[in-house]
Simulated assay, not measured.
Amino acid sequence: MPDEQRPVTVGELSEQAVLARVFPLLPTARGTLLGPGDDAAVVAAPDGRFVVTTDVLVEDRHFRRAWSTGEDVGHRAAVQNLADVAAMGARPTSLVVSLVVPDDLPVTWVEGLARGLAAASTPVGAGVVGGDLSGGPLVVVAVTAHGDLEGRAPVTRAGARPGDVVALAGEPGRSAGGLAVLTAGRSSAALAEVGPAADEAVARYLRPRSPLAAGPAAALAGASAMLDVSDGLLRDAGRIAAASGVLLDLDEDALAPDVAALAPLAARLGADVRHWVLAGGEDHALLATFPPGTALPAPFRTVGRVRAVDGAGPRVLVGGGEADVAPGWDHFAG
């Protein structure tokens, strides 16, 4: 029998009992014809096509329960997938979520996860239509997201052309700053004078804010290439450069507001603020290129230009020269 002084754990309930607590917390997806509860969901695809992406969060590699609540992890899991859909110029419609949990995990943590998924998905009209639940030694959250192109062509990484404007929607470096704060310890004496800035950075790490509506808006405005900035601005810009066969030349002055906003916090931690902004990941900003003269949809801002390749091939420059910081996150190289 569970002790009334402690939370009920997953291992003390049946799978059906856990799901019965979770299903009422999940949002209904736009276009859902048959939702959770059957062998599979049925979702309308009025465009005749659908965008699909998947991502996974593994405990102690992508998040720590000591730092993150269930709501935090649910929000993060939704945003990192919804941002990939938006980066194709599509409107997110539905999520499928698979969850692995240890027996001793409080059921309230799983309920929090559902609330976090809902909080991130509901504003864009997306919802959870199904998934799977299994036991395991640690928490793993796998999300598959779908999106509707609404008759538009997808915006890929391969369309940037010399002369295009490079534009960014979002604020790079915040998540990296938050991770640095958590690693240092939020009660560190070094952070005493920048308390609000430290708290804000942590919030942006735990629950990234992605400008999801900007993806379809960019497609409607004629974006030539676009992607979700998840592994760092330099690394992801390099992916557009490689796919398009061009140079992306970032204007460091255009990123100066991001550097200035984080500089006091970085100074207190002895960190390189430029590395946070240029190479920090998990902000889920959108990086796009637009033909010259395009009126950029909000909140995109110009941060560089596309140039023709030279003898060194496609790559990213900063202020016309080679970048002097490591490009960003790689899941296996670090």
Rank of each mutant, 00 (worst) to 15 (best):
A78S: 09
V325T: 07
G311W: 10
V277A: 00
E322D: 14
R76P: 07
P106N: 13
E200S: 12
D228K: 12
V97C: 00
H75N: 04
P291L: 04
A267R: 14
T294C: 10
E71N: 01
G177A: 12
A83Y: 03
L113C: 00
Q16H: 14
L19S: 05
L220P: 01
P292F: 07
G185E: 09
V325L: 05
D258I: 00
L138M: 14
V124D: 07
A256I: 08
L57A: 04
L212K: 05
Q5Y: 11
T294M: 03
R115T: 13
G31T: 12
A267S: 15
R207C: 03
G116S: 05
V85L: 07
S210G: 10
L247F: 06
R64L: 13
V51M: 04
A203Y: 08
G319F: 09
A267F: 09
R152V: 07
A333V: 13
A201Y: 01
P7G: 10
F23H: 13
E4C: 08
L113R: 03
A29V: 02
F300H: 13
R157C: 09
E171R: 14
D84Y: 09
G35W: 08
S175G: 15
T289D: 03
V96M: 07
R157A: 13
V85Y: 03
L168Y: 02
M226L: 14
G215H: 01
L182P: 08
A242W: 04
V325G: 01
V73T: 14
V107N: 06
A242Q: 12
R161E: 10
F300R: 11
V107H: 07
A20R: 15
A237H: 01
A266S: 07
A203G: 11
V22C: 02
R301P: 15
G116F: 05
A285L: 05
H284Q: 12
W329A: 06
V325F: 00
P137E: 12
D104C: 07
G35N: 09
G89C: 07
F290E: 15
E71I: 02
Q80V: 15
